[in-house]
Each structure stands twice: as C-alpha cells, then as structure tokens.
Design a protein around this nucleic acid. Structure first.
Length: 188
DNA sequence: AGGAAGATCTACT
DNA sequence: GTAGATCTTCCTA
C-alpha cells in the first residue's frame, strides 16, 4: 500500500521520523528498485537557516511551498539530493532522505553506482540518488501515486535515534535528523 | 565572473 | 579517522 498524501501534511519532523522503515520504490524501463528508508532529515521554511527555503521563494525551491507529497530534488556539490515536500497546511518544509537499505534491484544499483560494495551503494544522499537514478527529471512528481517514484507503507520496525543534521553550516538547536539505530546503511 | 551549497572521492596521518 | 580537491547548479554582482 502506498502512503496517502495526507501522511505528508504534518510537521516535517514527524513525517521524517515516521518515514524510517518505509519503502522507497523507483521504476524505470523494466527495472524496479526498492529500498528501506533508514535515515532522514527535516527542513523548515524561512525560519530555518539551513533550509533551501530560507531566502524566500525562488524559482528552484518553489516546490517547497506547493503541494505536499511531491519530490523536491536539487543539486549540491555535484550531487542530487532527494527530498519529499512535507509540511502543515499553509506552511513550508521538506524531508531529505539521506540513506536507504537496498531491498530489490541490487544488481542494477551496482551498475548505476559502478561499485560492488553493497554498503557503499546507498549510505548517503548523493549515493542513493545515483543508485536509484534520481535527477532533475524526477522533480515535482507525486510520491503518493504509483509512478516512476513513490513510497510504500511497511510494517518494518526500527529503534529510532535522532541527532543534529549533518553537513549543515548553520543548524537549528534541535535534533532534526532521524535514523534506524545500528543499521549499517546509515551514513557516518 | 565569482562564490556558496544539506556531498563524495581519494589519499593519507 | 581527518584533509583537500573536485563535483554542478543557482544566486549576486
């Protein structure tokens, strides 16, 4: 079952936490790639100095103001980072997916990454995007519909830890990063 | 034209 | 484990 749109119409931190253990599905050609989400981060709007939305509406970040449950993909340091727009009504925010554990299509991921080591396939935001062939073409697609990319519900349970966000120059004094404790695919 | 950005790779101490 | 080069867009001047 695919997570409904209203799952994303809540506080980004809650959505980020509950996305741990859910299944990210990517389909292209005749390939199906699946991974368990094991690490996420929440980002807010203009009050969040690390957010892409911090300077107000811009062409490339408009998606964060729009409908929830859409993909929001942007480039940093030559890497595509994969986000899902999530926020309460009339607010701004998104959840960054930082790492997944490969479930299906592992051989295809190895080809996409040109690596054999399974751990190295998806243990970081840029790596995950490469393994799943995520780039700008997938921007602004709904993840609550069965399409090129979407998120399935699951009953996988993890013990969830939290910490400060990673790589952020100006962070908020809150723990906005969530991860599956002890999972080897969590970055760092 | 220049710089910054939510990162990654490689090569070492 | 850290250090430095380099990755590609978008923003500001």
């Amino acid at each position: 079952m695919i997570l409904p749109k209203k799952f994303y119409l809540r506080d980004p931190a809650k959505v980020a936490r509950e996305l741990i253990g859910k299944i990210l599905v990517r389909r292209y050609g005749k390939h199906v790639l699946k991974g368990i989400i094991v690490e996420t981060e929440a980002y807010y709007g203009e009050e969040d100095p690390a957010s892409r939305a911090r300077d107000g509406k811009k062409k490339f970040n408009l998606a964060m103001w729009k409908d929830v449950g859409k993909t929001f993909i942007y480039m940093v340091h030559g890497n595509w980072l994969f986000n899902i727009v999530a926020h309460e009504k009339e607010k701004v925010g998104a959840v960054l997916v930082r790492a997944v554990e490969p479930l299906e299509g592992i051989e295809e991921m190895k080809k996409n990454r040109k690596k054999e080591n399974v751990i190295e396939l998806t243990n970081g935001p840029g790596k995950l995007s490469q393994a799943f062939r995520i780039d700008k073409n997938l921007n602004s697609l709904p993840v609550y519909k069965k399409g090129k990319i979407y998120v399935e519900n699951s009953n996988i349970q993890f013990e969830i830890g939290s910490s400060r966000r990673i790589g952020v120059s100006r962070d908020l004094p809150k723990n906005l990063r969530f991860f599956a404790k002890g999972n080897p695919f969590v970055s760092r």
